[in-house]
C-alpha cells in the first residue's frame, strides 16, 4: 500500500513537478484555443457541404468526413508529423498537431452540425425566405441558432473529447501538459507527475462532463 502511495501520490514529487506542468498546461490551453475554433469552423463548412444540393460538393464532403472519422487521430498525427517530412515538408510539432486536429475535428463537428441543421424543420427556412431574408441570412439568424441549440450537448461532449485528445500531441514531442508530466516521470522514475496531470484534466473537464450528463437526462424526450 505504502509503495502504491509512494508511486502514485508522492506529494513532494508533485510539488517539484508542478512548475513544469504549469508550462505544459499553458501549451495545452493554447492548443485548445487554436484547435477548437478551427474545428468548429471546419465542421460548419463540412456540414454545409454534406447538405449541399450539388452532388459534386456533397459526396466529396461526406467522403472527407467519413475518411477522417475512420482514421485514428494518432495515426493521422504521426502521418503528418513523421510522414510529410519525407515529402520535403518540414513542419513544427505545433503545426502538425493543428493540421491533424483540424482534419479530425472538422469531421466530428461536421457530423454534429449536420444533425443539428437537419433537426430544424424546413418550414423555418420557408418562413424566413418568404419575408425576404437571403439564404445566408436565413442560415445565420434562423437555422443555425436553432441547430446549435438542438445539438449543444453533442457539441460540448465533442469539445471535451478534443481537449482530451490534445494529450496525443505529447507523442510528437509537443510540450503540452502530458508531455511535461511524462518528462517529469522519466526523470523521477515515479508516476505521480502523470497522476497530477490527470488531476488537472479532471478539474478542468469535470464540470463539463457533469453538464453533458445532465443534458443526457432529457435524452429522447
Amino acid at each position: 500500500m505504502d509503495r502504491i502511495i509512494q508511486q502514485f501520490f508522492n506529494v513532494e514529487i508533485m510539488i517539484a513537478a508542478w512548475p513544469m506542468l504549469l508550462d505544459g498546461l499553458g501549451v495545452t490551453l493554447l492548443l485548445c484555443l487554436a484547435v477548437i475554433p478551427l474545428g468548429l469552423a471546419g465542421g460548419l463548412l463540412a456540414a454545409l457541404g454534406s447538405l449541399a444540393r450539388s452532388r459534386w460538393v456533397r459526396l466529396p464532403t461526406i467522403f472527407f468526413v467519413d475518411f477522417f472519422r475512420a482514421v485514428p487521430p494518432l495515426v493521422l498525427l504521426i502521418f503528418i508529423y513523421a510522414g510529410l517530412p519525407f515529402a520535403g515538408l518540414r513542419i513544427s510539432p505545433f503545426t502538425a498537431v493543428v493540421i491533424g486536429f483540424f482534419l479530425n475535428n472538422s469531421a466530428y463537428y461536421g457530423e454534429i452540425f449536420r444533425a443539428g441543421i437537419q433537426s430544424v424543420g424546413f418550414g423555418q427556412t420557408e418562413a424566413a425566405r418568404s419575408t425576404g431574408l437571403t439564404a445566408t441570412q436565413t442560415l445565420a439568424h434562423v437555422v443555425l441558432p436553432q441547430a446549435v441549440r438542438n445539438v449543444l450537448p453533442d457539441l460540448l461532449s465533442n469539445t471535451i473529447e478534443v481537449v482530451k485528445l490534445t494529450s496525443l500531441a505529447s507523442v510528437v514531442s509537443l510540450g503540452e501538459l502530458l508531455h511535461a508530466a511524462d518528462m517529469a516521470r522519466s526523470v523521477t522514475y515515479n508516476a505521480s507527475p502523470i497522476v497530477l496531470a490527470a488531476l488537472v484534466y479532471l478539474i478542468l473537464l469535470w464540470p463539463f462532463v457533469r453538464l453533458v450528463s445532465r443534458f443526457g437526462r432529457g435524452l429522447g424526450a
Binding site: 424543420g121 418568404s130 419575408t131 437571403t134
Partner: peptide, 20 residues
C-alpha cells in the same frame, strides 16, 4: 427575389414561428 418577397406576405398552416 428577396426584394419582391418582402412585398408578398405569407402565412403558413404550421405558423413556422422561429422558436428561438
Amino acid at each position: 427575389l428577396n426584394a419582391i418577397r418582402q412585398r408578398i406576405g405569407m402565412v403558413f398552416q404550421a405558423f413556422n414561428l422561429y422558436p428561438h
